[in-house]
Design a protein around this nucleic acid. Structure first.
Length: 496
RNA sequence: GCCUCCAUAGUCUAGCGGCCUAGGACGUCACCCUUUCAAGGUGAAGAUCGCGGGUUCGAAUCCCGCUGGAGGUACCA
């Protein structure tokens, strides 16, 4: 077991090639929790070394997502810090990466490779046909300075590749696997590119130089990085630097278990969870439990509790599957923990989006929503469900099927009679409150020879247009006397 | 194909040699509560701990093999 010594410094280094997806958030979350648990520092860095895949606006979108989920950072592109800049393209301009490439070249630990991309593609195709891996080891790794100079003199473009040992094995330890060793035969490796022919660094070089310069102590990243870690070890050795401690967290798999979550195929854009009605604290709690657990029964935890309890040794080795049902359930639990005022405030934007209230809502609308929020509070699993649950409070109801108005074990005539009787009784109610409504209607049922449930059911459908609603008296109370009476008449007329 | 990692119910997980006749949660089903729907309560079904060998007095837990899954196999990250 590898000891964790403070102070720790960890980082999250997304590449701005699109929105941040939920799997990425889980990885950041683990980094952040680790840093906070050990009282260390969490650094945000943007890795935009892939000019081709850069997406405009992606960086600010990623920062927004991270803030929304409740994370903060000690150093980053937006707030700066002692190791600024925190954007690789800017660091590249400073010659930060080039200087180490020059050093490796001078020491014979890297070499200029003159094969073109098309040649490489051809070689790859040939290797594939023979069903053997390419494992490119450039002939240039043994060229004399004169040969290199000659090629350069001809103006041939080149990449700089790392001279990865041909024999022996490379080993490293992984915190999540209990500090156990992962080893690979160097013969299975190839000479990775450090510097593209465009002169810009490749991830392997850039992130490693940055991690070292930024004094990162622990690299917590997705397990898709396990195969490239040996290269990083070789590079650290070549540079004469002490490697950080590695912890590769398992991926989150798609619902069907086939493959990891993908931006294209799955609805996992972090910034979409708000519109889908999720509370950031619920999402964070759920995500913390994807691959990490505290004990055999604790699931709902505050951010402070998770920070206090989070340790890497309790992170799972095997991948988890994305489980929307569980997330929904957890979101419902968090919604129920909200105060009624908070629920009102949180559903208002969704009602506005649905056109049920104005944008921005008027004072009267806001007050009315506060009145309604308690009615659906515990019925909500996603905030976005609020409009569908409350729409009949905002516009008139229509009854698609007249028969839908008739409760079980009743006929049309009985229903019309019940609605008319209810209308008459409710018209007499002087104080329109739940207690009054309840006594009035409870007393009415036996006079009609109906069970209370039958009478209430008839009124419910007449007034709301549906069979499942918040409790009847609360509903009538919030709807008001005038509208309630009007709907009873309308429903009775539909049944004729 | 090759390399690496992983393996407890449909899903997320507890378990780190005897406390396990395998615990919790989601989902499913039933019942209770009840004016409907929820919420809440109670309970049930669901795992030969992937399979096969070992080690041991004793294995879900340690070792090996197999199988299955995932990841990687770029001048992407």
């Amino acid at each position: 077991m590898i000891e964790i010594t403070s102070p720790v410094r960890v980082r999250f280094a997304p590449s701005p090639t699109g929105f941040l997806h939920i799997g990425g958030v889980r990885t950041v979350l683990f980094n952040w929790l680790f840093a906070r648990h050990y009282g260390g520092e969490f650094i945000l860095r943007i890795e935009d070394t892939d000019e081709k895949r850069l997406v405009a606006g992606a960086t600010s979108d990623i920062l927004k997502s991270l803030h929304w989920i409740g994370l903060d950072w000690n150093e980053g592109p937006d707030i700066g810090g002692p190791h600024a800049p925190y954007i690789q393209s800017e660091r590249s301009k400073l010659g930060l990466y080039q200087q180490y490439v020059d050093l490796l070249l001078a020491q014979g630990k890297a070499y200029k490779s003159f094969v073109s991309e098309t040649e490489l593609e051809q070689m790859r195709a040939e290797a594939q046909a023979k069903r053997v891996p390419l494992r490119y080891r450039g002939a240039e790794r043994d060229w004399s300075p004169a040969q290199v100079a000659a090629a350069e003199a001809q103006g041939q473009p080149y990449t700089v590749r790392l001279k990865v040992p041909l024999t022996g094995e490379t080993v490293f330890h992984d915190l999540i696997r209990g500090g156990e060793q992962i080893s690979v035969n160097n013969a299975d490796l190839y000479d990775i590119v450090l510097l593209k022919s465009s002169g810009s660094p490749v991830y392997h070089l850039a992130h490693l130089v940055d991690d070292h310069l930024m004094q990162i102590t622990h690299v917590i990243r997705g397990e898709e990085w396990v195969p490239s870690t040996p290269y990083h070890i070789v590079l650290y050795e070549a540079l004469g630097w002490e490697p950080p401690v590695f912890a590769h967290v398992p991926n989150i798999l798609r619902q069907d278990g086939h493959g990891k979550l993908s931006k294209r195929k799955d609805d996992v854009a972090t910034n979409r969870f708000w519109e889908r009605g999720y509370l950031p604290e619920a999402l964070a709690n759920y995500l913390a439990l994807q691959g990490w657990s505290y004990d055999d029964h604790t699931e709902i935890m505050t951010q402070a509790e998770i920070i206090e309890r989070f340790t890497i040794d309790r992170v799972q080795r095997s991948p988890a599957r994305w489980n929307p049902d569980k997330l929904r359930d957890m979101n419902g639990i968090y919604i129920r923990k909200l105060t009624p005022e908070a629920v009102a405030a949180r559903i208002l934007p969704y009602l506005a989006d649905a056109g049920l209230v104005s944008t921005p809502p008027t004072e009267a609308e806001t007050a009315y929503v506060s009145r309604l929020a308690p009615l659906i509070h515990e019925r909500l699993e996603e905030l976005s469900e609020a409009p569908a649950l409350l729409d009949f409070f905002f516009h008139e109801v229509s009854y698609p099927e007249p028969t839908a108005l008739i409760p079980k074990k009743m006929d049309a005539a009985q229903t019309v009679a019940a609605l008319q009787a209810a209308h008459a009784a409710l018209a007499e109610v002087a104080e329109w409150n739940e207690a009054q409504l309840e006594t009035t209607l409870r007393d009415l049922a036996p006079t009609l020879n109906l069970k209370t449930g039958q009478l209430f059911g008839a009124i419910r459908v007449a007034v709301t247009g549906r069979t499942a609603t918040p409790p009847l008296f609360e509903t009538l109370g919030a709807l008001g006397q005038e509208r309630s009476l009007a709907r009873l008449i309308a429903a009775a007329q539909v049944l004729g």
